[in-house]
Design a binder for these strands. Sequence first.
DNA 1: CCACTTAAGCAACGCTGTTGCCAAAGTGCA
DNA 2: TGCACTTTGGCAACAGCGTTGCTTAAGTGG
Lengths: 355, 355
Amino acid sequence: MNSDTGVNLPALRNHNAALVLDLLRTAGEEGASRLELADRTGLTPQAVSKITARLREEGLVAEAGYRASTGGKPRTVLRLVPGAAHAVGLHLDRDELTAVLVDLSGVIVAANVVPLDLGAGAEVVMEVAAGEVAALTSRPLLGVGVAMPGPLDHAAGVPHRVTGFPEWDGFPLRDALARRLGLPVVLDKDTNAAALSIALSGAGGDSFGYLHLGTGLGAGLVLGGAVYRGARTGAGEFGHQTVQLDGPACGCGGRGCLEALCLAAVARGDLDEAARVLGAGAANLVKLLDIDRVLLGGRVVAGAAEPFVRGVRAVLAERAERAGEAPVPVALADGSPDPVAEGAAQLVLAPVFGR
Amino acid sequence: MNSDTGVNLPALRNHNAALVLDLLRTAGEEGASRLELADRTGLTPQAVSKITARLREEGLVAEAGYRASTGGKPRTVLRLVPGAAHAVGLHLDRDELTAVLVDLSGVIVAANVVPLDLGAGAEVVMEVAAGEVAALTSRPLLGVGVAMPGPLDHAAGVPHRVTGFPEWDGFPLRDALARRLGLPVVLDKDTNAAALSIALSGAGGDSFGYLHLGTGLGAGLVLGGAVYRGARTGAGEFGHQTVQLDGPACGCGGRGCLEALCLAAVARGDLDEAARVLGAGAANLVKLLDIDRVLLGGRVVAGAAEPFVRGVRAVLAERAERAGEAPVPVALADGSPDPVAEGAAQLVLAPVFGR
DNA sequence: CCACTTAAGCAACGCTGTTGCCAAAGTGCA
DNA sequence: TGCACTTTGGCAACAGCGTTGCTTAAGTGG
């Protein structure tokens, strides 16, 4: 709940309803009983009964069987109704567009991938995007989430200086696409969308960094359970941190950038060195933000997962041992075929669950 | 408002009351009218009237004159009553203890500095601390905030492995001192306390990094208006980021740490190089977290402010220019004689204002 | 002097979660 | 089989929150 604004009764009601929905989403197939929800929320069982009654009336929640009795009346299991709402996620990458349709529980119901030239201009891209949305479903949608390479402004829904495609600079993509589709549209960086999808899957814990090694090297940050975007959606510029003062020049104009060193090692086939360099950056991130976990993804990592996970893990383990702490776990982000497209759809679902 | 828990009517009431108090704190001497508060909170004027009536009954808020009329009845100015509550902040440094008494508005009412050997053991330090608290005031206190060098656990109130003083490891300082004083005690890292005091002063904007260059090099982070501590109060480990792969060895066992390079430059009198190295670390921080501002403090910076501010500013300006962005402002954190002690006291006041 | 504007309180209200009570639906022992 | 007990969950009454509608207070300006 926004701590900068006053809270009145409708806001309170929405907050508690969203909280209950989020708990039911997390519970998944297993569901949760009214008393379990009361325990988790700190509300009284009667309040939970009233809230879930409203949610059942709206069709978002349904009763689904009973728990085993523990000596008295068995608990009634409540579950989210996955089909109650749907959202579309679009992943605009440099050379292809991935579109997914997800239900309320976040499960991918339908998906499609088509070639796309991100440099072909906004009109062409919007045409393709609108076609893909229409092709996925004729059902009413909650909205459409769009994820693309940064930099961009999440709050305003406008890309800036997308690397290599100056024609996107300042184009009001969110509003233009929303008008065209007649639906709410949310825009975010690809790495943030991926981080959101990992956060909702629970694989990252309460706070983690998702390091994406593909064409470039970026990061999505989840701090305290929420995607951290910074003041201007600029957070997560991980690749252009200096790890070698006065080191080799980088395309960004700087020297000794992590991305340049890491990708140079990849280019010459020295994956161990690439992983070691990446591990140094990950260690900087872990120290600065005290996160619970580091997750790796992106095309380069997907192509050679083992050396990267092992190499980054080794660097973090060595530093943790010297400090006498437990090492921060390192894992592959492999929960979804396209975490970016999935996360894009979840940008739309997130407000329903108070996120 | 905690987004992980349900909200009932008393919680809602507390939230709105704290929000109004926070706005009045920010308004300071100038105060705010009921309608201005209504605008800022999004609540109706009548709701604000009820909330402020309760706060006036409790003695936390008082009417204080009128605004000029704008064509009708003039607005009544409301102000925080500074003397309504007090808190003590203790800054435990390696060789001295600073104690301050602050009122509800955050103003330092009394202060004292005494020598202290942090290595003399918990009993001796607690004895001195209790004496200083008693010497500052006989008034009832809201509580005592304690700030000391890390690492430590803010949530549990326990120091771990305070650099150079292994005898503190695991001593339950917060609870022991609370029992001895009969008052609530809050424990935090010195850099976090300083960051809190800067955040409340408004000098840092919504998100900033406070870089403290003293015996070591640490940082306090404020993200989205709140001090960011990370999962285990470990956030802000800024000095041991790698900025020189395979560089010179650091006391921490790593190589090419920012702290080692920066302090080595200071030791040989090359402040420009120290500032340049610090600037590289600051640039990494700014890129990763997209913060609004960088603030510098600590003994070393206080002794030679100009070269550090200039040097760090130059690095950030150069990088911003290459990226075509506005540079992130760099300034000296000079709002308080001891931001750490002041922030320690504000650790106690913060919950009153919903922070 | 009077019409108008703006601020702020009073009273009634709708809606929130809470409390007290009761019915439903199990378990376990005699 | 019967009965005491435990546990779940709904019904009804309730206290307390911010909101709405209206009135009163206290200014400005022609």
